[in-house]
Design a protein around this nucleic acid. Sequence first.
DNA 1: CATACGTTGTTAAATAATTAACAAAAAATT
DNA 2: AATTTTTTGTTAATTATTTAACAACGTATG
Lengths: 208, 208
Amino acid sequence: MKHLPHKTIERLSQYRRALLICASKGKTHIFSHEIAKIQHITPVQVRRDIMLIGYTGTLRKGYNVQELIDLIGDILDTHEGLNVAVVGIGNLGHAMINYFNGKRTKLSIVAAFDSNPDKVDRIFSGVKCHHIDQLPEIVKNEKISIGIITVPAGSAPEVSEKLVNAGVKGILNYTPKPVNVPKHIYLEEYDMITSLEKVAFFVKTHGE
Amino acid sequence: MKHLPHKTIERLSQYRRALLICASKGKTHIFSHEIAKIQHITPVQVRRDIMLIGYTGTLRKGYNVQELIDLIGDILDTHEGLNVAVVGIGNLGHAMINYFNGKRTKLSIVAAFDSNPDKVDRIFSGVKCHHIDQLPEIVKNEKISIGIITVPAGSAPEVSEKLVNAGVKGILNYTPKPVNVPKHIYLEEYDMITSLEKVAFFVKTHGE
DNA sequence: CATACGTTGTTAAATAATTAACAAAAAATT
DNA sequence: AATTTTTTGTTAATTATTTAACAACGTATG
């Protein structure tokens, strides 16, 4: 197992979540076509992904749910876990915190940052919000390695730079403004406006 | 110009936003490498995308900003515009409304839905929230063709079904729970947990 | 016991997306 | 006026991802 495709990584994360639900219902084995159905993809793709991570099911019984969960964990998780910070406690930042709060053991949002004095020192869904000027210090002390940017677009580049200088290794930018980071920082950008415009385009061209 | 690649559609949306900013600064022409720099992609990709939409720049002067904006508009927008509804006014739903409010002329969020009585009949950033039971009626009356799902994961399938039955043509699902829609409905799903786990994976394997 | 069936694992083919290569031509420079 | 530079447009090559094809084989069935 050398280089897992990016798309496979994404699907593994999704398989795991589906599998956790299955496990909680007492299901011990699952077929590729069952996983496929849940994720609405093809069974072949599921089998191929599972092949790539070197797991092997039992013929005619499918995959052992718990074993697969554990193996995906070995691949995706770090043993000690990773700490995450959210920068920008607007609605989106707050939504991110809610999403994760207490759900993952291996990824924890341990700090939030904002420049608005009304938000600083308040606690949002269990996560304390600090002033953004404290970012370098707290990122270092708390060993934060991933930053999520949910500030207004205009401030994204400056926040990104702060995060990089503070030593994070990965950035998730939810701002429509692309940011520049050094090559050694992993950057994932997601732009809600683009997504909606894409849906609109395909709605428009539907059936043409 | 027959089939534009999905990825090109996404980039066109992004180019346009960058171009609008340029235009507002009074810039009349732009080079492929300038666009590329903003989006941090390669100039070749920009030129190729622009070629695919059949536009042609002027040698050594680059592309006419306004013409390109207009042409991208012709491709992405519908003449009459499209109406959008947000289902689920938690932090994420609220964030979506804020993002779009008044910014796009061709895509308007015209209604919000929630089942929580505390939210029903209130106005969120200019968008009125209705009870989810009114969805079929309002979607029809307001000619809503796109639904954005921002409810808690568990309710996603049921909301999705409601939207489809009400007649929307496209769905944007921000829930980690995959939903099933008929083939003729365009579905885009985005899962924040997966994104973060993906970043975590690449942070983990960085340099291995 | 033999045959049919269902399901995995894997290789090969097809499709999609990116990147490279380079000709063409206008502007700038010598 | 010739040469160099810059930048577009396009085709070709490469890389990434998905899909198809099918052998292998255990289980069920007759």
